[in-house]
């Protein structure tokens, strides 16, 4: 589903943010991306949804080489990728329902159809009773669930979550992670960037560790969990 071959990313005058990244994520896989702050986790995710362009190397997403993608084709790629951020990126003056429907407006989905899909998605994330609430009246966990609903309402094949629990307390963190696991169980490929080791230990999923722009380890869930537990 996601493949990277000798990918580099550097900004002029700075050392490379990512160096010689080689990666293969299968369809329907769940992958943790971990590493210290500044290791390149966010940049790697941005490369996948064309938020940044690789300086060198090839990136295949769903079999398509996005290293050479035309600017005008990027929106169509993004419609297959859901993105979740630590800072939610919700529209504060729109209701929960409108925030989720926002992703369908872009596709020109008629209002009635969109409303039905939004309701279904809000039910999936357990927020059907908050459809007409404003985002700022929700808890952090609820806001993040709205973001996940928005990311999933287009039925994307890939879900990228960059520190999705970074602003949440431990109980809400588990709530969100369980939701991401459910999404993955439905067949969506999920990549979660986190520096929270307890999540890796708890969920035991494939873990890629980035340090100074290099992938320094790529372990299956059990091995990664053991290593995290050992400290």
């Amino acid at each position: 589903m996601i493949q990277m071959f000798h990918v580099y990313k550097a900004y002029p005058g700075d050392p490379p943010v990512l160096s010689d990244i080689n990666l293969h994520v299968q369809k329907g896989e769940f992958v943790f991306l971990t590493g210290p702050s500044g290791a390149g986790k966010t940049t790697l995710m941005k490369l996948i949804f064309c938020g940044e362009k690789a300086t060198k190397g090839q990136i295949l997403v769903g079999g398509r080489n996005i290293a050479r993608i035309r600017e005008s084709a990027i929106p169509y790629l993004r419609r297959n990728i859901g993105v979740v951020f630590q800072d939610f990126k919700l529209l504060p003056h729109r209701t929960v329902e409108d925030n989720v429907a926002f992703a369908l407006d872009v596709l020109g989905v008629p209002r009635a159809v969109a409303r039905e899909r939004v309701q279904r998605m809000l039910k999936l994330v357990g927020l059907q009773h908050k459809a007409s609430s404003m985002p700022l009246k929700l808890s952090g966990g609820e806001q993040q669930r709205v973001v996940i609903a928005r990311a999933l309402v287009n039925d994307p094949t890939i879900l990228l979550a960059d520190e999705p629990t970074g602003n949440l307390d431990p109980a809400l963190t588990l709530e969100i992670m369980d939701l991401l696991m459910d999404v993955n169980a439905r067949g969506t490929t999920v990549m979660v960037a986190t520096h929270d080791h307890s999540l890796i230990t708890r969920y035991q999923k494939r873990t890629l560790r980035l340090e100074n722009g290099f992938i320094v380890s790529d372990e299956d869930g059990v091995k990664a969990a053991r290593r995290m537990a050992a400290g």
Partner: peptide
């Protein structure tokens, strides 16, 4: 920014 993230064209 959000429009662009969810796949809006220019």
């Amino acid at each position: 920014e959000i429009q662009k993230l969810v796949g809006a064209t220019d």
